[in-house]
Design a protein around this nucleic acid. Structure first.
Length: 292
DNA sequence: GGTAGACCTGGACGC
DNA sequence: GCGTCCAGGTCTACC
């Protein structure tokens, strides 16, 4: 099956794929050429498929060896549209960024879209796995979750999709802690999976929520394991750029950029980008931190 | 509202 | 090979 989707211009698949580290997390798989991206995902009809994404004039080409019915194709179309933010509009941001040397290349590179997972559930779990640990450990924990709880491709039992809420909800905390190496994050992951699987929490509805960003942030922070940094990361994935993902790296970068390497508080990191208004999270994210 | 300490893993380092 | 130290956000108790 082949499917072509149109993207609002300017668009660069490479810029979306490398917008952050998600492309390194299973079940995403980077192309050796860095020109495309593969993923294994579970469709609404429970079919597990492998999709390959590549750029085509005006948009993105989706290919899979599977034979799919019309409903599955619609499902994939909506999923990829969400993951790549094909409808997202950044002209206001580009107009502002053009006057700032540290962001001047954003429009030419078609930057702004942040790679999303197929479901917000997957993105919340992955975000929890990024907290209070090194990137190598995040990749390991995530790979363990996929390997132990994800559904397999029919044609390759080793290749798995991200676990469903139900499959994780059925796990026990001890297994998550010890075998998946989630450590103290295990209760958070388990509690979230159980809330989503039971229907108590409709995470996916937040993708298109009308809530103001501050309210959405409060809602996200009711999830165990989601604090200021993680909620800001999730808001950015939801297309809200009102908050900064202030982590230790951000503090270090702002210290070097504006405080001559001196001590910097999270509030000072926030204020450094305050003038960017509703775009401040994106201005921070795309800022060219290289010294001139 | 602000602060301190616990939570857990794995890499780096010294012995 | 073993022990110790440290980095990395969130949560909770306490002031």
């Amino acid at each position: 099956m082949q499917l072509t989707l149109h993207a609002r211009q300017p668009f660069s698949l490479h810029s979306v794929i490398y917008s952050h580290g998600w492309c390194q997390l299973a079940p995403f798989k980077e192309d050796a050429s860095q020109a495309g991206l593969s993923l294994i995902t579970r469709l609404e009809n429970s079919q597990v498929v492998e999709l390959h994404l590549s750029e085509t004039p005006g948009g993105v080409l989706i290919e899979t060896p599977e034979t799919l019915d019309d409903q599955a194709i619609r499902n994939i179309s909506e999923m990829i549209n969400w993951m790549l933010g094909l409808d997202q509009e950044f002209s206001d941001f580009y107009a502002l960024a053009g006057a700032e040397p540290k962001l001047a290349k954003a429009a030419a590179r078609a930057q702004g879209r942040i790679l999303r997972s197929p479901t917000l559930f997957e993105d919340v779990i992955k975000t929890i796995l990024t907290t209070n640990t090194l990137w190598a450990a995040t990749k390991r924990m995530n790979a363990n979750l996929v390997a132990q709880f994800g559904d397999s491709l029919p044609t390759n039992l080793e290749a798995r999709a991200f676990p469903t809420p139900a499959s994780l909800a059925a796990a026990d905390e001890a297994t998550l802690r010890a075998q998946t190496r989630l450590g103290y994050r295990a209760p958070s992951v388990l509690a979230l999976a159980q809330r989503v699987a039971s229907g108590e929490l409709d995470l996916e509805s937040l993708k298109h929520s009308d809530l103001p960003s501050t309210e959405l942030r409060k809602r996200l922070q009711t999830i165990r394991g989601i604090g200021p940094y993680a909620s800001a990361n999730l808001l950015m994935l939801l297309g809200r750029y009102n908050f900064l993902t202030v982590d230790s790296w951000a503090i270090k970068m702002v210290s070097q950029e504006w405080y001559n390497g001196g001590p910097v508080t999270p509030a000072q990191v926030e204020s450094a980008f305050e003038k960017w208004g509703d775009w401040r999270g994106l201005a921070y994210w795309l800022w060219d931190w290289t010294r001139v």
